Structures are given as structure tokens and as C-alpha cells.
Simulated scan of single mutants.
Amino acid sequence: MTEDPFVAHRSLLFTVAYEMLGSAADAEDVLQESWLRWAAVDHAQVRDPRAYLVRTVTRQALNRLRTLSRRREDYVGEWLPEPLLTSPDIAEDVELAESVSIAMLTVLETLAPTERAVFVLREVFDMPYGEIAEAIGKSAATVRQIARRAREHVAARQPRVQVSRSEQQAVVDRFLIALRTGRLQELMEVMAPDVVLIADGGGIVAAVRVPIHGAGPVAKLLARANQVVAFETAAVWLNGAPAVRIDIDGEPTAVSLAVANGRITRLFVMRNPRKLTRLDEPAELAR
């Protein structure tokens, strides 16, 4: 019996939806809506099931993204993407790992919905302009213009600094040691002078509501936290890169790190419990 194309391409479809939405929960809802549409069509009339399903998921994700964009304007504090536990294998596909990184997903949040869809489909999944045009209801020429604009927007906000897996892991290990000891100097030494910490508590749990800038202030915040709460730390793989999980009174916090020149340049601290439900089983991602 031939495997249903939706099942065969599910990991790809989830990845498309997740990169467009930055939320695994919303991506799963989009897949459910897309499955219902797929079940209602005559499969014999579909020439290219993979392309058809990607188009369907793209349209559903775009609809949801426009709704979410309005909802996120009222979000309490900073909004960060939902982190995913991933296997180390994801890092072997460098482009996929970069595209699902918390740093990249945060940049994608600054794109308009249509720009984000075009960027993801073109730059990550290498979809032809004609297929993207069909998916989003624009002409191929318009899609080319949107793609160029989106590339320039992302490039201006996400410098392409290639960091090897071993370098990222070494920085994570140093950060973990400094975090466990709570020593101010050690924390400062593992961070770039202009490091930025962004936290997302969603108004549900305690978290700083505005970004903290500079190695001194960030180190003081982390050192102070070390003194007032008991926590456990572990190295994990999140969104295709070595990262940190912190458990405070049994409740998880996910910390993703952006690294350059052997130091941390960004700390993304995800504390909203509604976004931390995917930390126990690796997500299946594919291009």
C-alpha cells in the first residue's frame, strides 16, 4: 500500500508552517486544517502532491500569520518563538539549522506576512518563483521583488556569522559553568561587551519585559538569579544548535544563544510555559 503523500511529507509541511509562524502549536493547527483540505480533494487529479501540499500549508499559514500579527501586538513583554528540542543531526544541514534558529525566527518576525512566506519558501526550501506565486496569489514578477526586499531586510538584521558546532558547544559549556557558579567575572567573560538578553514570560511567569543590553547588566541579572532561586541546568539541542535548559522548581526555561568570535552576542530566554511543551521529544524537521 502506497503511503499517503501528506504522511510522507509531514515533516516538511510542519517545518514550512513552523518557520512561517514561529510556533509549533500554530503549525500543528495549520497542518490539521491542511489535512482536512487534502482529504476533500480527488488525489488522482493532483499531479505533484508535494508541491500541492506545500501550497496548501502556505495559504493556511498565511491566514493564521495575519491573525497572529494582530494578536502579538497585545502580547505582554517581548515575544520570542516557541523553541523546539531537535536532534544534533539537524545541524548537519547548515541552511536548515540556520533557518530554524531562534535568532533567525526572531528576525523573520519583523517581516510582513507575505514577505515572510516568500522568504521561507524561496531561501529555505528553494521553491521556484512560479510555485510561490501560485501559493500566495501574486505574479511571479511580484514574488521576485518581494523576495529581494525580504532578503535585504533579513541580511541587514541577521549578519551571516558562520559558527561551527564545536565552537557553539564550547561557548555553551563555558556559559553553563559560569551560570552554575554565579560568578560575575566568569559570566562577563563568556559574553560579548554588547550582548543583549531578551526574555519571554508572556505575562504568565516572571521575566524582564524589555531587552537588557551590555555584558555588565546581563551578568548581574544572571548572577542575582543564581543567588535567589535554586535551579538545575543541562546542555540540550534547541532549534538545530547547542543550547541550555534551566529547570526552576521543576518548571523549564529554554535559553538559546547566538555566538560570534567565541562569545555570546544574544541570549533568548523563553519562559512562557505555553511555549515550552516541545522540550522532551525531538521535533521532526525536514526540507
Rank of each mutant, 00 (worst) to 15 (best):
E3N: 03
D4S: 11
P5T: 12
V7E: 13
V7Y: 02
H9E: 13
S11A: 15
Y18D: 04
L21Y: 07
E28C: 00
V30M: 07
V30K: 04
Q32D: 03
L36K: 07
A39M: 14
A44Y: 08
A44V: 12
Q45V: 10
Q45E: 13
R47V: 10
D48R: 15
R50F: 01
A51T: 10
L53H: 03
V54D: 03
R55K: 12
V57Y: 00
R59E: 14
R64F: 00
T67F: 04
R70T: 12
R72H: 13
R72K: 14
D74K: 10
Y75R: 14
E78V: 14
T86I: 10
T86W: 06
S87V: 05
S87H: 08
P88G: 05
L96G: 04
L105Q: 15
L108F: 09
T110L: 09
L111S: 09
T114P: 08
V120T: 06
E123N: 10
P128N: 11
P128L: 10
R144W: 02
Q145F: 06
Q145K: 15
R149I: 01
A156T: 04
R160V: 12
V161N: 14
V163R: 09
V171M: 10
R174S: 10
I177G: 02
A178P: 06
L179C: 02
I198S: 11
A199T: 03
A199L: 05
G202C: 10
I204Y: 04
R209H: 08
P211C: 15
I212V: 15
G214M: 08
A215I: 06
L221N: 12
V229A: 13
A230M: 06
A230P: 01
A234M: 08
N239V: 03
A243L: 08
I248L: 12
E251Q: 14
R263F: 03
R266W: 11
L267Q: 05
L267S: 05
P273C: 03
R274L: 14
K275P: 02
L279A: 08
A283W: 02
E284K: 14
L285Q: 01
A286C: 10
